[in-house]
């Protein structure tokens, strides 16, 4: 859509798509699937984002960063909408995003989000030495979206991005 000042929603989307996730700065909000879409309604650009977890504390920061980024491009008629549906899933992570996560030292989610109740996620590959001989320390890690694992070979403790 082309508006009065000739900035399309696609251009707006592209302007904000490389905003990094505050917790994992090597991947963007687009990589993560948190940035859902940009619309134009009632003279406003409406950016729709979805949280990874209901109480994701990064949402406010992301909203501020979107507004700030667009402000730098003289776009101030911006609204940021929070949606819970469709519920965010790790299935939306691109292969590229998973690779970036690995290089950053976080083991990416291994399989689809439709894991069974009481399923134990085993043999998570250590992002340091690549060994799959690992064990879970705690299913709740440093942020809501991560669990804590340790590598039994190189003994390194690492974060695992939980299937969700």
């Amino acid at each position: 859509m082309v508006t009065d000042n000739h900035i399309s929603v696609i251009e707006v989307y592209n302007l904000i798509s490389d905003i990094p996730d505050p917790e994992i700065p090597v991947i963007t909000i687009k990589d993560l699937g948190m940035l859902r879409k940009v619309d134009f309604a009632d003279d406003n650009y409406v950016v729709t984002i979805t949280p990874t977890y209901t109480a994701c504390p990064a949402m406010k920061m992301i909203e501020d960063q979107i507004k700030e980024r667009l402000h730098e491009h003289h776009i101030d008629n911006v609204k940021v909408n929070l949606t819970y549906t469709p519920a965010w899933t790790t299935d939306w992570l691109s292969e590229e995003a998973k690779q970036k996560m690995r290089e950053y030292g976080i083991a990416p989610p291994t399989h689809s989000s439709c894991s069974k109740l009481f399923a134990v996620e085993e043999h998570i590959q250590c992002p340091q030495c690549k060994s799959k001989n690992s064990s879970v320390i705690s299913k709740f890690g440093s942020t809501a979206c991560k669990a804590l694992y340790k590598c039994n070979d190189c003994k390194e403790v690492f974060d695992y991005f939980k299937c969700h």
């Binding site: 977890y53 209901t54 109480a55 994701c56 504390p57 804590l148």
Partner: peptide
Amino acid sequence: EEDLALTNISLDLIGRAQ
């Protein structure tokens, strides 16, 4: 680890309440 677990659960619940 348990401290993190219980407070993570707490955060989920407060987010849902919000």
